[in-house]
């Protein structure tokens, strides 16, 4: 089994991203959407929780949500892939189940 975890909260506000990463097993994917996209940024107090987990877990971020919030892709942590809504659908299809960290 392989799971997709979606996170829609800023890691500076809630622990959803941190908890999702702690509960993601090797080979799982984490997709940051809505306010969750702030978790993809370099240089925040929480960037390390993502960069330390890259490798065991695949990280994705919603491009439309980055653009809406004025976040330049150049400021995203290395190794995180940017996807659109079709990419989101593909990720859901590719994994056995999706868990939303609300």
């Amino acid at each position: 089994m392989s799971q997709l975890h979606t996170v829609n909260k800023s890691p500076l506000d809630r622990n959803a991203l941190e908890s999702a990463i702690q509960h993601a097993t090797k080979g799982n994917a984490v997709l940051m959407i809505e306010d969750g996209v702030y978790g993809a940024m370099q240089g925040t107090q929480k960037s390390a929780i993502v960069s330390d987990a890259i490798g065991d877990i695949s990280f994705y971020v919603m491009g439309p949500d980055l653009k809406a919030r004025g976040i330049d892709e150049a400021r995203i942590i290395d190794g995180i892939k940017v996807v659109d809504y079709s990419g989101f659908v593909e990720l859901v299809a590719k994994h056995d189940a999706t868990q939303s960290w609300l």
Partner: peptide
């Protein structure tokens, strides 16, 4: 909340794909 917007965009993309 953005939830309904994201769900709409997701559902639309799923159907289009």
């Amino acid at each position: 909340h953005q939830a309904s917007d994201t769900a709409y965009n997701f559902t639309k993309a799923a159907l289009e794909n």
